[in-house]
Design a binder for these strands. Structure first.
Lengths: 235, 235
DNA sequence: CAAGTGATTAAGATTGTTTTAAGAAGATTG
DNA sequence: CAATCTTCTTAAAACAATCTTAATCACTTG
């Protein structure tokens, strides 16, 4: 089903997580050091990584930074309480979520499921066969086959990247998608680039679909969360 | 299952508690002094602490104060009868509950269970995987995916922290949640900050969802207990 | 009334978003 | 083949929202 890489130097934690994850049908690999995790991640088809911050040889933060140079797989950090400053650092560096030790394995499992569900609905390149070729949200219509977008019936000319971002947002109307979510899907999991890249595309999109780009009515931002496409709701 | 740290200088009490707790499936550690308790708490994944107030070397109150500088784990104080003034003091300093000596072990067990249940249902940040994405309490609707809140059908714009606090209250409608409970959940167990932090967020929330913030009809305070969200009841 | 607790306010630090501009890469055209 | 155009990326700055804190006031309770 899915391959999960567990990276922690405490054997008890690893085996406990393994038991829970395997019971849910996930395949697991494990590493004791950041270096080993990087190697395993490079050599295998990993769908999610559980990464401890405190480890010998190469700590989790460094490992994560290295990892992010080459891929964008979901990472959940395992942190000890006292390392709370590292939390923020970790999320800035590119973790998708974190759990503080001591953790409840059930909670970790929930987060794993949550991340993988996101990965499935957003990230998988193997788009479903039954995915519609046409989406409608409010006054926007998007035709995937014809690569055309209509706003109030009038054609709008978008660049390929703009088109893909808009399509993603229209596939999840009213739902907030973080820049990382968008990056995963539109850039096909390539390493996350500059922070502002998506902001610029969003800006260009707004210039084309909003009456006033500075006061967006459709493509809204949710502070510290991401962007969403609002359908029929009034401001 | 859960790790419980017992801190008391009387061996009889410790062993008695151990027997009862282990019979219920809890793992136990024990310390004889406050200093030792702090060390054990720092080095292990502790889920709950039973802490005696009267101890050599470092008393329980001091130990608790120190502990609270770094973490927010549930603490149940063990106090002697004559120290009832200390009870309140202990709760101010950051205990979650207290039991007076001589105590009935069954009662201690009940309180331990109660605290851990609270910790489970409240303590994990993103709750369970099957947590609904939508909550309704009275005239309030909250959409977790869209990060949107409607009051009488009208959208209300909340900041991330306000949103999380309101979500927590809506997940437990009519239930009183102490500031410490709220802190545990929303700040993910980080050490408790300034007293007024939550009060400020509550104030901001009330400004956004109450007709008159000074006379709240939804987000009510229960003196010396905490806050609760009242549904459709009339005053 | 005193102690404990909640409410209010405002300021500063922090963090996230928008905007602008410039350059690189690739396609298209004369 | 060079010139031009489009698109994408990046960085920097300006801008904006949010969070925390501390100080002060006001209310509740015994």
């Amino acid at each position: 089903m899915h391959n999960i890489l567990i990276c922690d130097d405490e054997p008890d934690i690893v085996s406990a997580l393994k038991i829970y994850l395997q019971a849910e049908g996930y395949a697991t690999l494990s590493a004791r050091t950041g270096r080993e995790a990087l190697r395993l991640a490079a050599e295998n088809d990993i769908h999610l990584i559980l990464l401890d911050i405190m480890m010998p040889e190469m700590d989790g933060i460094t490992a994560l930074a290295r990892l992010r140079e080459t891929c964008n797989v979901p990472v959940i950090l395992l942190t000890a309480k006292s390392e709370d400053t590292d939390k923020v650092l970790g999320l800035n560096i590119g973790a998708d979520d974190y759990v503080t030790k001591p953790f409840n394995p059930v909670e970790v499992l929930a987060r794993v499921k949550s991340q993988l569900r996101r990965y499935l609905t957003l990230g998988s390149r193997t788009a479903r066969d039954d995915a519609p070729a046409r989406y409608t949200v409010g006054s926007l219509e998007l035709d995937d086959r014809g690569k055309q977008v209509l706003l109030d019936g009038e054609p709008v000319s978008l660049t390929p990247t703009e088109f893909e971002i808009l399509k993603l947002l229209m596939q999840h109307p009213g739902e907030v998608l973080s820049p990382r979510d968008i990056y995963r899907k539109v850039w096909n999991g390539e390493p996350y680039g500059a922070e502002s890249t998506i902001a610029v595309h969003i800006r260009h999109l707004r210039e084309k679909i909003e009456i006033n780009p500075a006061e967006p009515r459709l493509l809204k931002v949710v502070w510290a969360q991401g962007y969403k496409l609002d359908g029929g709701t009034r401001p």
